[in-house]
């Protein structure tokens, strides 16, 4: 019944003497939201980097829908349906909001390379409508032609989320999607994340804000010093004394 989307097996990664990931095993199921929490420097972002092909693990395998993706190129992994929101917003600062979401929509339709210059962008009605409705879902359809670089950090994050969602990923990786957002925008983002479940999209979410974690997550894993010290439902994690010590109570968060 529970279909696995991402299967991380025995992954290790060291930077010099620092063991950033220590024998990680993780299984993400279709349609589920899996939160990863842990103190700063625990290795959360590194784990995502390994998943999207930004870093190669020293040992271990990462299987996406049953296929090993270690060693594949970034664009191949994305085209397979694994899409990521970065910790520092990665958007096209020199392009308008509309163009920012049209580019990923075109990637979904055209694939990783297509050379066709005698068709005008203005004739891509479908793509444009899709882009406008994506911007609408984050409440930005009123500033289509504003430059993305001129927005606040929180708005950039929401834009990046729209950039990723328009690709209809099978697995969405979110690295602190609400950091730097005002409370109101955070709540809106939570609502958006809860709403999008189409096609059984699975999500991995890294988040320091426990309010967000407990409102969206089905499962939570706790990462500390490169190791997963606990995995369970939100209630199990709340009550777990090891977690209390290592993270929830142990820091000022």
């Amino acid at each position: 019944m529970s279909e696995s989307v991402l299967k991380i097996t025995n992954v290790n990664k060291s930077f010099g003497g620092l063991k950033a990931l220590n024998n990680i095993n993780l299984n993400i199921e279709k349609g589920k939201v899996h939160a990863i929490i842990g103190p700063n420097g625990a290795g959360k972002s590194t784990l995502l980097n390994v998943c999207i092909g930004l870093l190669a693990p020293d040992t271990g395998t990462v299987e996406f829908n049953g296929k090993n993706i270690v060693g594949k190129q970034a664009h191949e992994i994305n085209q397979m349906g694994l899409v990521r929101v970065f910790q520092t917003p990665e958007i096209f600062a020199d392009l308008s909001l509309l163009e920012n979401v049209m580019v990923p929509a075109l990637a979904k339709r055209d694939g990783s390379f297509k050379f066709k210059i005698f068709r005008s962008l203005a004739n891509e009605v479908d793509i444009m409508e899709e882009a406008i409705s994506a911007l609408d879902s984050i409440g930005m359809s009123d500033k289509l032609y504003q430059l993305a670089g001129s927005m606040s950090r929180g708005d950039k994050r929401r834009l990046e989320l729209a950039v990723c969602l328009i690709q209809h990923p099978k697995l969405l990786l979110l690295d602190e999607p609400t950091a730097g957002m005002a409370r109101h925008d955070t709540n809106q983002t939570i609502e958006l994340l809860k709403k999008i479940k189409e096609g059984g999209m699975a999500k991995i979410i890294i988040e320091h804000d426990m309010h967000v974690v407990f409102s969206v997550a089905d499962t939570i894993s706790v990462l500390a010093r490169g190791e997963i010290i606990a995995t369970g439902t939100p209630d199990e994690i709340k009550g777990n004394p090891v977690v209390q010590e290592a993270y929830l109570g142990g820091s000022d968060e």
Binding site: H75, N78, F86, S112
Partner: peptide, 8 residues
Amino acid sequence: RMKYTGYN
């Protein structure tokens, strides 16, 4: 961003 948006 282009690479992680699926473009070669």
